[in-house]
Design a protein around this nucleic acid. Sequence first.
RNA 1: GGUUCGGUAGCUCAGCUGGAUAGAGCGUCAUCCUUCUAAGAUGAGGGCCAUUGGUUCGAAUCCAAUCCGAAUCACCA
Length: 589
Amino acid sequence: MNLIFNLKQSTANCINNLYSIQLQPEQVLVNATKPEFEGDYTIVLFAFVKQLGKSPEVLGNELGEAMLAAMPGIITKFNIVKGFLNFTISNAYWFDFINATTPDNLLPAAKHPRKIMVEYSSPNTNKPLHLGHLRNNFLGWSIAEILKLQGNEVVKTCIVNDRGIHICKSMIAWQLFANGATPNDTKQKGDHFVGDYYVKYNDAYKAEVTALVASGMTQELAEKEAPIQKAAQAMLLKWEQGDPETIELWKHMNSWVYEGFNTTYKKIGSDFAKTYYESNTYLLGKELVEQGLNKKVFYQKEDSSVWIDLTADGLDEKIVRRKDGTSVYITQDIGLAEVKQKEFNTDASIYVVGDEQNYHFKVLKLICQKLQLPAADGIFHLSYGMVELPTGKMKSREGTVVDADDLVEEMIAISKEKTESLGKVSEFSQDQLTELYNTIGLGALKFFLLRVDPKKKMVFNPEESIDFHGFTGPFIQYTHARIKSILRKTGTDINLVASELLPLEKQLAIELSTFPDVINEAAETLDPSKVAIYTFNLAKLFNTFYAELSISNAESEEKKHLRIKLGILIAATLQKGMSALGIAVPEKM
RNA sequence: GGUUCGGUAGCUCAGCUGGAUAGAGCGUCAUCCUUCUAAGAUGAGGGCCAUUGGUUCGAAUCCAAUCCGAAUCACCA
């Protein structure tokens, strides 16, 4: 059931029959009719007026009559205003829609289900998660859910950046300053504990550089010569050589971090079918470099480093293997793409990664295509913008990061406070209350981060903590709870009898009918904000309806049953839409 | 400098496959709880859609130039 498509199709057919002009349904523009005009859907005639050499009035009348005949029982009348042909859809059509729709068939079955990988989260093990990671995690989860609603099979993966110089920095600082302390001793989450040593490293490094400069060294030289920096580099070398003591320390500190991450993931609801570790994957891709050399996709310079020339594609030359034979970032990613493809054999692979890596992913896809890897064409980069503070970018060194755990706790605390002050859930048990606060607090946070276009950078103002009114998660959760409360009183045992729909009832039916299109569009554009906006509009429309018309005290039994059915469908749609954002909706709040 | 992305109400954002009078939320002001959950609803106010030019019956939307902001152009990941 897709009325808009049928309208386009019929219009194309009618124009073809009337004037022998071939039109694709996609060329027909169908809009919802503006409220100030009569009708439900509007076809814009201007596009055809010129081509047919007919006035909009004449064309509108001829086309309108033909459409009446083409869609009997659906289109009941039409009118023409300037170049706009407005159709009124029959009451029976919308009544049948309400009657035939159930919470279980809100979305059609998948036509071509695919197997899709979503890689997201991808943390570093030297510092705790912050607001930017939350955007990443929520986006990744949401995209996975949206794709599942479409009927696809989804495999969620995570690549952990667990090696490299930044990890060594935390390790050195721990050796120097910790006196053998563990997260247990300081009662800290492991990721915060390790993150603190990363900060301590940077403080020590800065102090050393300042001291060296004071003793007469140039800034540039001091930055290279700072002893702690040299120690970190030496440690990286030892790590790469497999020095047992270093490896042991590395494993130990990473285990603390993972414990912390797991707590956070559990709290915010992130999970993965498979986690890859860069310490295992960083040597991948070497055989592919050899293959690429043989295929002449790559070339070798005199110093024996290996490159690819992408200038023909509008990009630069890019190194894929160092002169010492080691892999670079891009090489690993090529290797990992191949490994993932072999392991899961997916039709597509979506990488949820910040937009600072746009260039990287362009190069990655291009190289994979040139190597003719099976994974190549399925690579999609879901690029999202940074979360900024009103003062600008978050910088860990300047202490301006918004910590993920802190923010989550704050949101839950606010939801607790608000819930208590409203006093509507006095009969809840302590466990139920805890769950409710989590649901609302996380709902507010997730909705806030998902309601804007992922591509765009967004501003988060910690001073004006996230809202619970208006275009927010709690507003929609509240609307859902409100409907459920009504349905508990009226019951859901209904017997639908056809009746004339009031404008608000019809509007709700129309809004409900677009849900599948919204999910499809969100899936195609990898944009959960489309779903956020839709659920908000639906909830808002229901609230208007609620203020105007009574369900339990409806004018008649037919109306009461009809509105109960609408309530059931709206609640179910809100629930599904919000679940696509990773947000639960309470029965009561 | 090259490439890419952005600039819409005081603030945060929709709208951008060209269509009727540019929309929400927050904030401000004013109304509505003896009646299904007021985390709600209704109304008011708020706009040279960065600028200039072009294409078109019609431009916030497409094209060009300019201004402003961001990312990137690493043998870091």
